[in-house]
Design a protein around this nucleic acid. Structure first.
Lengths: 152, 152
DNA sequence: TCCAGTCTTTCATATTTATGCAAAATAGCT
DNA sequence: AGCTATTTTGCATAAATATGAAAGACTGGA
């Protein structure tokens, strides 16, 4: 499946870069040896229901749809609350201990959130490692997680 | 304040109609005797961080920003959970009883959600009345509220 | 009141996005 | 494989959106 694979790439790009224009997708995909035109990207965006969000800083960037984001956050919250054991941070890392078996699920939910600040995520049976992009980012992520854990 | 007032109108329009293009704002505002050009709307949209969402049905429509929506829903959920007493529906109405003092807050949160299906909302000290646009709409709203009440 | 600074709007247009249509690719059949 | 139906894509361009620059409106002094 060609289209699906491309859309997977698109999702990945969403989380890794600030994408301002559809042409950006075209070039970034080009860099990964995927050739498409802006027209196709426009249709992908419609398919995937991505939105172009005016960012606080004055620009624009594409982002996941509202609905999906809400659902994912909901699941993430539930999983966190259900499985959370403890966490620790060091440098740009956040390490979350969870009940056995919950690591992969939690990791993939964190990934699905496409957090701006997260560089990568990795989950084994009972541990999730989140690598942030900076120290500040780590702090922010920590707060986000704390919020999810504490709030209704 | 001219701009702010206009932006207030824009928010109201958001909830009452499916707005597909910026020009739609221009005409709808024109109908309310507010004259603006598309350029201004474009800037308002940037200011207000509205997004153009590809809807499931194939079209597009403008909508409130992700962040705001998530925050509002969160508050709504909390308020519902905290203050909920009972509810009943009849025709296109949903009547929610809440603990004294919580009506206005709940009503304004419901309004802030700009639910597609809601025609109007009204809250006194301990009651919120939501008037839907159709019977189906009423059903949907009921489900939405139920979901908010029951889920984590 | 008059002015300087700030903010807002429009006009004109550049930039970006969406889409009709034809071609190409893909998937299902037999 | 060979054929047909369906899906996906690119091209060309229409449609929609964003924005520089100039003009207009508003603000708080002097």
């Amino acid at each position: 499946m060609k289209k699906q694979e491309r859309q997977r790439y698109i999702k990945r790009l969403l989380s890794s870069k600030e994408i301002e224009r559809q042409e950006d997708f075209v070039s970034l995909l080009h860099a990964e040896n995927i050739e498409v035109t802006q027209a196709t990207i426009s249709r992908d965006i419609k398919d995937m229901q991505l939105v172009k969000v005016p960012s606080a800083t004055g620009g624009y960037h594409y982002s996941l749809p509202v609905q999906k984001k809400m659902n994912t956050e909901k699941k993430l919250k539930r999983t966190l609350k259900d499985a959370y054991v403890s966490y620790a941070t060091q440098d740009k890392f956040v390490l979350i201990k969870v009940l056995p078996g919950n690591g992969p699920a939690l990791a993939s939910l964190v990934e699905a959130m496409h957090y701006e600040h997260v560089f990568g995520t990795l989950g084994d049976d009972s541990t999730v490692l989140i690598i942030c992009k900076s120290l500040d980012a780590t702090l922010e992520l920590q707060q986000t997680l704390q919020r999810l854990l504490s709030d209704n």
